[in-house]
C-alpha cells in the first residue's frame, strides 16, 4: 500500500531505464571522443595525461588549415544561397492559396531529404564530370552549388514554419496603411521573419559543414573539406589529432543547434527592438 499511494497512469515499467540507457548510449561515445582529444599520448585508447598538443598539431597542419578554410567558404556561400532561395520559395508557397503544381514544387524542395545521399552524389559526379570536360572549370562552385541544393529544404522548413505562424492581418494592415508590397515586405514581413531566416541559415550552415558523401564524390583533386579530410585519415593510423578536429566541429554544431533551438523556441521576435 505504501509502495504507490496514487496510481500513475503514465508509468510503464522499464521505460525510464531504457530511456536513460538510450541517453547514455547517445552521449558516451561522443564524450569519450572529446576526452581523448586532450590525451597527451599518441593513442586514442590509453590515457596518458592531459595535453592540448593535438589541437596545436591540428592547428599547424597545413592540410587541416586548407580544409577548414574550404569548409567555411563552402558552408558560408551555400547557406547564404540556400537561405535566400528558401525565403523566396517559402513566400511563394505560403502566401497564396494552394496552386497548380504545388505538390510538385513541394516534392522538389524536399527531394534532397528523400533521395539517398549516395544516389545524389553519384548523379552529381556524373553530371559535373560532363561539365568539367566541357568547360574545363574545376573550381569550388561545383561544391557550393551541390551544397546549396541539399541545404535548401533545411533552410526552407523553419522559414516556412515561421511564415505560417505569422498573422496575415499584419501584412494586410501594412497594405491598408499605404505600404506597397515591397515596403510591406521590408517593414513588416522581414522583421518578423528574421528569426526564421536566421534559424534556416544556421541549419543550412551546419548541414553543409557536416556533409561527407556528396562532397567526397563531387570534389576535384585537392578540394578536401574537413569531413572528407577526416574520412581519408580514418584509413591510416589514427592519432588524437582527428579527435581534436572532431571536437572543434562538434562544438560549432552544438553551439549552432542550441542557438537554433533558442531562436525557434522564443517564437516571437523580441518586442520593440527593431527600429
Amino acid at each position: 500500500m505504501a509502495r504507490s499511494r496514487s496510481f500513475d497512469v503514465r508509468r510503464q515499467a522499464g521505460f525510464p531505464a531504457v530511456a536513460i540507457t538510450c541517453f547514455i548510449l547517445l552521449y558516451l561515445p561522443i564524450i569519450l571522443l572529446v576526452v581523448y582529444s586532450f590525451n597527451a599520448g599518441k593513442s586514442i585508447a590509453i590515457w596518458e595525461g592531459f595535453s592540448l598538443q593535438w589541437y596545436v598539431s591540428a592547428w599547424e597542419n597545413e592540410k587541416v588549415q586548407d580544409a577548414t578554410i574550404r569548409s567555411l567558404i563552402i558552408a558560408t556561400c551555400a547557406s547564404v544561397i540556400a537561405t535566400s532561395a528558401a525565403v523566396m520559395a517559402a513566400l511563394a508557397t505560403t502566401r497564396s492559396p494552394k496552386f497548380k503544381g504545388y505538390s510538385v514544387v513541394f516534392a522538389m524542395i524536399n527531394q534532397p531529404l528523400m533521395i539517398p545521399e549516395i544516389v545524389t552524389a553519384v548523379a552529381l559526379l556524373i553530371f559535373f564530370a560532363m561539365i568539367k570536360v566541357a568547360t574545363g572549370y574545376t573550381g569550388l562552385w561545383y561544391l557550393i552549388l551541390a551544397h546549396s541544393a541539399f541545404c535548401i529544404p533545411f533552410a526552407y522548413m523553419p522559414i516556412r514554419a515561421r511564415l505560417q505562424g505569422m498573422d496575415l492581418n499584419l501584412e494586410q494592415a501594412g497594405a491598408d496603411l499605404y505600404g506597397t508590397p515591397w515596403r510591406v515586405f521590408r517593414r513588416i514581413t522581414l522583421p518578423q521573419l528574421w528569426p526564421g531566416v536566421l534559424a534556416g541559415a544556421m541549419l543550412a550552415f551546419v548541414i553543409s559543414l557536416d556533409d561527407v558523401v556528396i562532397t567526397e564524390f563531387v570534389k576535384s583533386a585537392g578540394q578536401d573539406t574537413l569531413p572528407t579530410y577526416m574520412l581519408g585519415q580514418l584509413r591510416r593510423v589514427i592519432t588524437p589529432e582527428v579527435n581534436a578536429i572532431s571536437t572543434v566541429l562538434l562544438a560549432i554544431s552544438v553551439a549552432l543547434v542550441i542557438a537554433f533551438y533558442l531562436l525557434t523556441k522564443s517564437g516571437k521576435p523580441k518586442q520593440g527592438d527593431v527600429q
Binding site: D167, Q172, A173, D176, L177, K268, Q271, G272, V274
Partner: peptide, 15 residues
C-alpha cells in the same frame, strides 16, 4: 480607406 482589424493587427516589432 483604413481598417481597424478584428485582432487589431498591431505590428509587434514597433512601438
Amino acid at each position: 480607406v483604413n481598417t481597424v482589424f478584428q485582432n487589431y493587427a498591431l505590428f509587434p516589432h514597433m512601438t
